[in-house]
Design a protein around this nucleic acid. Structure first.
Length: 729
DNA sequence: AAGCTTAGACTTTTT
DNA sequence: GTCTAAGCTT
């Protein structure tokens, strides 16, 4: 136990051992946020304050959820499997599967990812003969998702003219289509679960009673619906403790609905009195932090925070002005070569940029210089065309009413079903109000038609695979659908074939994990449905080969949560960073500044900032002013390297021994007994300080002392013989 | 029905 | 400059 808490600083310790109450932890960049979150859970469990089943931990990405699982597993000798740790969407999926009847869904409902949703909307517009110039599918998608995130069903959306009325009608039509096809999009997962909990009292009560501690990671990224979802779950009698960790200065996802205001609202609505600030940074040198602090100070509406470090000031920040984008890229390459000569690992160097389009010039320069590099972003495993096609066949087996899947593969590989026949089928489906699949027999064609043959293929597949283990099922489908043959005969099909094999491997992997979880599977293809949900919810890795020591290229967004010894931020120009689309509104500009703050705080030891006088953008040469963010960095922190740049590196003093601030591993001890029947983790009452939790004990007899975290009143050492402590139940 | 050509767009992105 | 999508040709 004491091991668990030993390496925490005062604020971290305070946060970890907070008595049961709502809490807001403002965790600055590099301040040990994940550590606090996982140690908090470990503390609650190891002191016996609650049961693993009473914990609900919510993250945004699958990666973060996995990491939390792994860290907890290392901290505690319990199996974390039964615990509810996951993403908002993953947890909603779990709830909806468990209560599908109450939620008005079939057990094997499918999940649409964004691309599927867009395809579904396009199909809908076509079927309804809607002019997609007037209602661009992308805009409609955005509109629908925004309504759902606001918690609004079509009937509740305000309309004021023909256009807005028609848009809401289309929203309604989309809903009807999804329900008919038994598919659920990402926003629907959340809204459906929210409505289920709100309307179904027994279900709500059950989960409210069960989850005593709800912990939220990256709270600044929650949207309105997610916040209401949390409020609902925590709002039982007695209420659960909401422990929210976040950093308003790192909120960079406003464009997809994140609502920083949730932090303020949470503080107010839950009467969170003692906001805990984690401001000590264990990552960067002083100059880097000072620059970050100076930049972010220009934002209004902050909750307020100032990072500091015990590490020295370190190197000055290097700023370079280039003639052109290619000149900038050459300079970056030169500096990287210098760093590598000085012994840096390429994998510890990151090249960050505001938008993906900027990577090309950098890649070109790196390639010419023969420096290995890795670009993050782009297509992920489950988003690849061949994988999507294979999944569509699998989806039709699990749920033949999935028209998106049907439309995707009805003529792929081509089997002579053209646009005409599909259109006719769609019209018929509309009149009969049935799915495309179910409409085929109604067409009245002879059973020998290609469409009927396709339906028969799916039916046979369903029968043939009912008893097959998942990997064999996938393998069989790849053969019978002729997908494999199709890519075999395609010139560039080699990689696609490898990916299809990889899909079988993924299925095998998934099966193994599901069996370890020992969940009883009721229906045929239930495991298949789980696998398909997994594929939609977790799109997989961007790229596989991690072995090579390569320079890391990514957008600033993608870099959030990562850290590197040396960081280059290129393209610091007005219009690019801050981006021109965000410059007009102050809200947008402040988000750009937070983005800059995130970029700067990725660096451990060295930070390089650069901009170019002219740059090719969209096929045109543009001349931009240098970014205002550069002006916001105090002069003493930076060293300008004006061209012609000085040759020869700074040399020496760069690689310092690593600070061992975060040596992991702490063995939890059993809650030890203290005199008077008290023990660590116990809730006690003190006449003056109120209620608190015992977090440590030492001495014996008349010297016996205990350390207590009284929350807002702070952490105190009290003599057991003197202080009148009353144990709370 | 399938392949080829040309016109348009084009922050950021996870679930 | 490069990718996608729609339109046109065969």
């Amino acid at each position: 136990m004491s091991d668990l808490l030993a390496k925490l600083n005062t604020e971290q310790l305070q946060a970890v051992t907070l008595p049961p109450q709502h809490a807001l932890i403002l965790a600055g960049a590099g301040s040990g946020k994940t550590r606090v979150l996982t140690t908090r859970i470990a503390w609650l469990l190891s002191t016996g304050q609650c049961d693993p089943a009473a914990i609900l931990a919510v993250t945004f990405t699958n990666k973060a959820a996995k990491e939390m699982h792994a860290r907890l597993g290392a901290l505690l000798p319990i199996n974390t499997r039964g615990m509810w740790i996951g993403t908002f969407h993953g947890l909603c999926n779990r709830l909806l599967r468990a209560h599908h009847r109450d939620a008005g869904l079939p057990q094997l409902f499918q999940i649409l990812d964004s691309a599927d949703q867009l395809a579904a909307i396009k199909r809908l517009l076509k079927a309804l003969n809607v002019d997609d110039e007037k209602f661009p599918p992308r805009e409609l998608q955005h509109f629908i998702n925004a309504q759902k995130e606001a918690g609004l069903r079509p009937a509740a959306v305000d309309v004021w003219d023909d256009y807005s009325r028609r848009r809401v009608e289309l929203y309604q039509e989309y809903e009807t289509q999804c329900q008919r096809e038994s598919v659920v999009d990402f926003a629907e997962l959340l809204l459906r679960t929210f409505e289920l909990l709100e309307r179904n009292e027994p279900v709500r009560r059950h989960y409210q009673r069960r989850f005593r501690h709800i912990l939220v990671d990256e709270f600044q990224d929650t949207n309105r619906l997610q916040y209401r979802w949390l409020k609902l779950l925590a709002g039982g009698e007695p209420p659960a403790c909401l422990f929210c960790v976040g950093d308003d200065d790192q909120s960079i996802y406003r464009f997809r609905g994140a609502e920083v205001g949730n932090m303020r609202d949470f503080e107010r609505e839950f009467q969170v009195t003692g906001v805990i600030r984690l401001e000590q940074n264990y990552r960067s040198h002083g100059n880097i932090l000072d620059a970050a602090n100076a930049i972010i100070r220009n934002n209004s509406a902050r909750l307020g925070k100032n990072l500091w470090t015990e590490a020295g000031a370190g190197e000055p920040i290097r700023i370079f002005e280039a003639f052109s984008d290619s000149d900038e890229a050459r300079w970056v390459v030169d500096e990287i070569q210098q760093l590598v000569r000085d012994g840096a690992l390429r994998a510890d160097i990151a090249l960050l940029y505001r938008s993906n389009a900027q990577s090309r010039v950098l890649e070109h320069a790196l390639f010419s210089a023969g420096i290995p590099y890795r670009v993050y972003g782009g297509l992920r495993f489950f988003e690849r065309q061949e994988i999507k096609h294979a999944l569509a066949y699998l989806r039709l087996i699990a749920n033949p009413d999935d028209d998106t899947a049907f439309a995707r593969v009805v003529n792929f590989p081509t089997r002579g079903i053209g646009a005409r026949s599909i259109e006719a089928l769609q019209d018929a489906a509309r009149t009969w109000s049935t799915s495309l699949y179910a409409t085929v027999p109604h067409l009245g064609g002879k059973p020998g038609t290609v469409l009927a043959q396709f339906v028969r293929l799916i039916e046979e597949l369903r029968r043939e695979t009912a008893r097959l283990p998942l990997p064999e099922l996938v393998d069989h489908v790849l053969d019978r659908s002729t997908l494999r043959d199709h890519y075999k005969s395609e010139k560039e099909g080699r990689e696609r074939l490898e990916n299809l094999d990889e899909l079988i491997a993924a299925a095998a992997n998934f099966t193994a994990e599901a069996q370890a979880g020992a969940e009883a599977l009721a229906a045929d293809h239930a495991l298949l449905a789980d696998f398909l949900a997994h594929a939609s919810l977790e799109a997989g890795e961007h790229q596989a080969d991690q072995g090579m020591d390569a320079v890391q290229l990514m957008t600033v967004h993608a870099a959030k949560g990562l850290e590197f010894d040396a960081v280059f931020v290129s393209g610091l120009e007005e219009g690019l960073f801050p981006h021109e689309n965000s410059i007009l509104e102050s809200e947008g500009l402040e988000e750009e500044r937070r983005l800059m703050y995130v970029a700067v705080t990725r660096a451990r030891q060295r930070l390089y900032l650069s901009f170019a006088q002219s740059r090719m953008l969209h096929g045109q040469t543009r001349c931009n002013l240098r970014s205002r963010f550069l002006e916001e960095i105090p002069a003493p922190l930076a060293r300008w390297l004006t061209p012609p740049k000085p040759r020869g590196g700074p040399g020496g003093g760069y690689y310092e021994p690593p600070r061992g601030a975060f040596a992991p591993r702490a063995q939890p001890a059993a809650a030890q007994a203290l005199p008077g029947g008290l023990r660590v983790g116990q809730l006690v009452r003190h006449a003056r300080f109120g209620t608190g939790v015992i977090i440590a004990a030492e001495g014996s007899g008349s010297d016996a002392r205990v350390q207590i975290n009284f929350g807002d009143a702070g952490i105190k050492w009290l003599l057991l013989g003197v202080a009148k402590l009353e144990a709370c139940a």
